[in-house]
Structures are given as structure tokens and as C-alpha cells.
């Protein structure tokens, strides 16, 4: 029973063989996910956890268990890379980088999360410019 209900990407199109998800993530982010004790520190401190379908520790768990639907999780897109989890993790796991790795798996398949055309002109004029650069860096491949 999965907590991920969204269907953003077709997991089968990700070309990940059995057991390859964790390898791919570890290669991209350089972190060892198996070192996680599932203590929940990252999740408790995450400012966006209330809106997430999977809490950050569950994302790690899903990856370890080779549950590829983690790629459809809202969580990976909600993470704004504030590094709070990485700062406090007793296991010295940089969860921020794990989230980026999961985003990259999708973005590198040329699938964009954000459609530039959907942003209104008024917003482009009022919202600080760096927010756009940041958004594109995170959500556009």
C-alpha cells in the first residue's frame, strides 16, 4: 500500500531495473541511504512536511526498498533545499542531496515539472528574479 497517489511520470519509462533505484540515487548524490536509522529527525524538522505525501525519512525508506513510485511523490518537488534535515541528521546523511538526486532522475529524462508558459506575466514582474532562476534550476531539466 503506497502513500504516493500522484502519477506525474510513468515509472516504467525511467529505465530503472530491479534494485537500481538506490544505486542511481547514491551515485547522483554521493550519500549512503542504508546508513539511515529511520529516526524521523529530518521529517520533524522539515518546514514543508505537512504538505508532503511521503515524509523525507519515508522517501529514504522507499528508495531502499526499491519502490520506484517514490519518483511520483510530491515530496521531492516540495523540498526547497533548505538543508535543515542535512544539518541535524545524526547519521550525517545529506537528505537535501537525495531529494535533488530523485528530481534529477526525472529531469534528466527531459521531463519538466514546471511549465514556463503557465506563469502569468504579472507574476514575472512582481516576484523577485532569483525565485524564477531557482524554480527553473529545481523543476526544469
Amino acid at each position: 500500500m503506497s502513500k504516493v497517489t500522484e502519477k506525474f511520470v510513468d515509472i516504467n519509462s525511467m529505465n530503472l531495473k530491479k534494485g537500481e533505484l538506490v544505486k542511481e540515487v547514491e551515485e547522483l548524490c554521493g550519500e549512503n541511504l542504508f546508513g539511515c536509522y529511520q529516526c524521523g529527525t529530518c521529517s520533524a524538522g522539515c518546514p514543508f512536511v505537512d504538505d508532503m505525501d511521503l515524509s523525507p525519512d519515508e522517501v529514504i525508506r522507499y528508495v531502499i526498498l526499491d519502490r520506484k513510485e517514490v519518483l511520483n511523490s510530491k515530496t521531492i518537488w516540495l523540498c526547497a533545499a533548505c538543508y535543515t534535515c542535512a544539518e541535524r541528521c545524526p547519521r550525517n546523511i545529506n537528505i537535501t542531496k537525495i531529494m535533488e538526486a530523485l528530481r534529477q532522475i526525472i529531469l534528466r529524462k527531459n521531463i519538466d515539472r514546471t511549465l514556463l508558459t503557465k506563469i502569468a506575466k504579472e507574476e514575472k514582474e512582481t516576484i523577485p528574479q532569483l525565485a524564477f532562476v531557482c524554480l527553473f534550476r529545481k523543476n526544469v531539466g
Binding site: Q38, C39, G40, S43, A44, G45, V49, S55
Partner: peptide, 11 residues
């Protein structure tokens, strides 16, 4: 105290 009860999954 801010915590996650990891056995219920609740923050």
C-alpha cells in the same frame, strides 16, 4: 518538542 512518531508516521 517537534518530532515524528515513526511508529504512527505522524509529525
Amino acid at each position: 518538542i517537534k518530532y515524528k512518531d515513526t511508529l504512527t508516521g505522524k509529525i
